[in-house]
Nucleic acid binder design. Structure first.
Lengths: 218, 218
DNA sequence: GTCTATAGAGCGATAGAC
DNA sequence: GTCTATCGCTCTATAGAC
């Protein structure tokens, strides 16, 4: 791995563990065993590092949040989206923990984020419509965009919510599954009959994942 | 107003406008036209100020989130809770914008927050049960706590969500009403018949408030 | 590409006069 | 209760040698 890539990876790891605010460029360099000067050879400044990390975030979403295929079953596709959200929430949780700060310090990054999130809400709307046409849920047209924002809000801020509510602020991967359960909860009351049973099953699967990991640790 | 109270009020105002991270003790003193030394006469440090502000936050919730009266109509009481949440989300929005950071820097405050939020989830559960017994909503026993957390998550992180999605990061009070609409959206799909009509009307009221204020400014 | 050394700036907090 | 002055620390970022 190139030094540049290693700086990115180390930054992500340290930001996630200690928070973006607490980690300085010196900490990153020190953790890697390189000099601060070397770090600044590869990146203009800390914001430059954050922009590169945002690039990875964006790529992850572009690669995994592809449009639904109407010829395939809807539930496996939904499960695929949820799995990719687990990865997203886990890998970039530091970003959500300091979203306002990070964006307010860097207008360019904020513009990129805004554009990206505008796309994202459209993609979530498309998924909701997919569930609607597959008759998994029944929902008024006027509520769809609102629900899409609630999904986005939940995914974005589940990890800060968990951190604020746990004694030790160290996030574990099973904590993330709890957030997915909440996302499914958002859809569930719009669902009836066979669709409801499918969603209940999916929710149960993620509840189980939560416990499995916990038991593996114990 | 005493200097001590004025420091608290000025801090809240500056934190809300510029973010807690960006505002130093020097900024607060300078804004008030007092010396940094004077500020440190009244408060041990910045965390001390934040703890006092949290005290106000806690008091606001204690005063406004009183248990439901089963002898009175449920909807006016719900509206009362929602109005008090508007105030909370508006007055202390800086707190939610930096929640993880603020709590990770001060173990004592974190403990207080944890205790307070544990109480709060119980109170939200009580409100949901109130809606259930008044037959405004129909909800499985097993979903109630999960829904309560979703309400809390929405209230906590609506303002950071809005800030992240607006060009200028200055929050207005009508933005808050949008969050209340989202909270009502959480309840709506559990509702049917007469209860649904009541919730729709309530949601419409807050949607209107959103627009009224916007027009008053224009 | 990597290092050492350090400039430059800001922040938190205190001492001591009034 | 309020001020001025300032110390010590940390952080960002750069200069210049290798």
């Amino acid at each position: 791995m190139s030094t540049k890539d290693k700086i990115i990876q180390t930054s992500i790891a340290l930001f996630n563990q200690y928070g973006e605010r607490a980690i300085t460029t010196n900490h990153i360099a020190s953790e890697m065993g390189i000099s601060p000067g070397n770090l600044y050879y590869h990146f203009k400044n800390k914001e430059d590092i954050l922009r590169h990390i945002f690039g990875l975030y964006k790529t992850h979403l572009q690669d995994n949040f592809t449009p639904m295929d109407k010829n395939l079953d809807v539930m496996p596709q939904l499960a695929g989206y949820l799995d990719s959200l687990v990865e997203l929430m886990w890998r970039f949780n530091f970003f959500y923990n300091n979203l306002t700060d990070i964006l307010s310090r860097d207008k360019e990054l904020k513009a990129q984020y805004l554009e990206q999130q505008t796309q994202l809400v459209e993609q979530v709307v498309a998924v909701i419509n997919g569930l609607k046409y597959a008759e998994v849920i029944v929902i008024d047209e006027s509520d769809i965009v609102e629900l899409a924002h609630m999904v986005k809000l939940t995914v974005s801020f589940w990890t800060p919510y968990v951190k604020a509510h746990s004694e030790e602020s160290t996030l574990t991967k099973q904590d993330i599954f709890g957030g997915i359960v909440k996302v499914i909860l958002l859809f569930k009351p719009y669902s009836h009959g066979a669709g409801l049973e499918q969603l209940k099953q999916l929710q149960q699967e993620y509840s189980n994942k939560q416990l499995e990991v916990a038991q593996a640790v114990a």
